[in-house]
Every structure is written in C-alpha cells, then in structure tokens.
C-alpha cells in the first residue's frame, strides 16, 4: 500500500520549508452518516517531523483539523539531501511513517 503521507521539503537559504499532506478521514465524532448513525471520532492525534533523530516540529491535532490534513512548517539547520522522517498516530492507535529527502 502506498504511504498515506505525501511530503515535499525544499531547502532555500538555510531554511527548509516542508509541506505535508496526509490521507486520513479525520472524523470529528459529530457527523452522522446517511442512516443517522454517528460516525465515531477518528483523527490523527500527533504528527512529528524528525531530522537526524530530533523532532523539528510536533503537531498535536484535534478532530477540528480538516479531512486529509495539510501542514506547512519551516525550520533551520538542515541541508539539501538530508532525510526527514514524518510520522503520525491516530486515536485508534493506527500509525504511519515515511521519509523524505530535502530538495
């Protein structure tokens, strides 16, 4: 199965700009389906971006983050060719992880 995370990281002038798109339903627990049953909450709780084993960004998400969440952040101290690890875990214990190379 393809990874649920799509990442693009670009280094420019010492600052790395990272854009990540995760495929996830992000159900809030407030929405009902067509039969009137509440769709249980199912959302990503924590997403981390690590560079050389150190977290450079940690997102703590609640159910109010949109479906298929998008995140952009910027950090210093990385260079072109470095590898980043992006991982998430949701409220049902599912998780995924991917690596990306800074361009």
């Amino acid at each position: 199965m393809a990874s649920s995370i799509r990442v693009r990281a670009v280094e420019n002038g010492g600052v790395t700009s990272l854009k990540a798109l995760v495929r996830h339903p992000m159900d809030s627990g407030f929405v009902k389906d067509s039969a009137g049953n509440v769709i249980p909450a199912h959302f990503i709780k924590v997403l981390t971006i690590a560079h050389k084993g150190k977290n450079v960004f940690v997102a703590n998400w609640g159910p109010a983050v949109s479906k298929d969440p998008f995140l952009e952040c910027r950090f210093e101290g990385a260079k072109k060719g470095d590898e980043l690890t992006i991982s998430w875990v949701d409220n049902e214990g599912e998780s995924d992880s991917t690596t990306a190379t800074i361009a």
Partner: peptide, 18 residues
C-alpha cells in the same frame, strides 16, 4: 483545533487547514 510544539531552530510559522 491544534497546537504545535516549536523546538529551537524551527521558525514560528505554521499553516494548517481547519
């Protein structure tokens, strides 16, 4: 909706969809 930990070396910038 969300909160973010910003370690040293990371710029105080974030973009998200809510």
């Amino acid at each position: 909706a969300a909160y973010f930990d910003v370690p040293e070396g990371t710029l105080p910038f974030v973009s998200n969809r809510l």
